[in-house]
């Protein structure tokens, strides 16, 4: 039914335009809508409410996040290969990410986090939606093997950065298009990565086709997503993404388009990056950590 993950991402991770001089550890004292996420977000109340409502359907493959379910194995494979490459591991083995720490920025209900945890990683998932975090934590509880390797926090990437956290790999999937300050967000991703670690970002390109698929198709014609879920102007081209991340100090390793067959719902890697794409980066080992 759905036309691609271009229409299904409803991640609620947002960076602030403000500086992070005074990070707020909790949402206490903020407005009702903003109270659903930690301080530091720049999303308006209506948007937050939209994402909160959708968060309860994260794990329904027939729900609004259906395309994320079908895309999940593909992005997991890409991330697995990229992380294994950076850490010199054999990818097609049992739990190839064993003992590696991975940060999933904008984890939503935990689809990506759980898959990475099953591959052996110790995953920290952060999201600005309190409901999503609660859904993710509850879902993980069903299987002790997943629960023991996933840790969810209602936080932003910037807040983790302030805490001085570092990870062997950082992933941000279907998130960056909702972020208000992309350069700052990219800098956080790189800062949160240990030297020698990898960064994987997937998002939607800003092309005529992505406008047709994500905005006109998904929101206006099909009504699969609430209007305004995506703002096309905020979509980022692969060139822009590469530039932002490289400026923050990591180098591009590889990328791929991801295309969904609208009839079968099956996703495949493709040279076509006009709508959905995924890109991996590596933070040089010799680079000094941020103090």
């Amino acid at each position: 039914m759905s036309m691609g993950a271009a229409l299904s991402s409803s991640r609620g991770v947002h960076t602030s335009r403000r500086t992070h001089d005074v990070p707020q550890p909790s949402a206490a004292g903020t407005s009702a809508a903003a109270a659903q996420g930690p301080a530091g977000q720049s999303m308006d109340a209506q948007e937050v409410a939209k994402f909160e409502a959708m968060a309860s359907e994260w794990w329904d493959p027939d729900g609004p996040n259906g395309a994320l379910h079908t895309m999940n194995p593909l992005r997991t494979q890409f991330a697995r290969d990229a992380i294994c490459l950076a850490h010199g591991r054999e990818a097609r083995t049992v739990q190839p990410l064993r003992d590696l720490s991975v940060l999933d920025v904008g984890c939503g209900g935990g689809l990506f986090s759980e898959a990475l945890a099953r591959l052996g990683a110790d995953v920290t998932g952060v999201d600005t939606s309190a409901t999503a975090i609660s859904v993710a934590a509850t879902h993980a509880q069903a299987d002790p093997a997943v629960a023991s390797r996933t840790h969810y926090q209602n936080a932003t990437a910037e807040q983790l950065q302030q805490q001085g956290a570092h990870f062997d790999a950082v992933v941000a999937s279907e998130v960056i298009e909702h972020v208000s300050n992309v350069p700052e967000f990219c800098a956080s991703l790189v800062a949160l990565t240990r030297p020698g670690g990898s960064i994987v970002v997937s998002t939607i390109n800003r092309t005529n086709r992505s406008y047709a698929v994500a905005i006109v198709g998904a929101e206006q014609i099909m009504g699969l997503l609430p209007k305004g879920t995506h703002q096309w102007e905020r979509f980022i081209t692969p060139e822009e993404l590469q530039e932002h991340i490289e400026r923050a100090g990591a180098e591009r390793i590889g990328d791929s388009g991801m295309v969904m067959n609208p009839f079968t719902g099956h996703w495949t890697f493709s040279a076509d990056k006009a709508v959905n794409y995924i890109m991996s980066f590596r933070k040089p080992a010799e680079q000094q950590r941020n103090p």
Binding site: P61, H69, N72, P73, Q77, R80, E114, A115, L116, R118
Partner: peptide
């Protein structure tokens, strides 16, 4: 290989 739940309906 892809981190999927082996009991997942899909």
């Amino acid at each position: 290989e892809t981190g999927r739940d082996i009991g997942e309906l899909g």
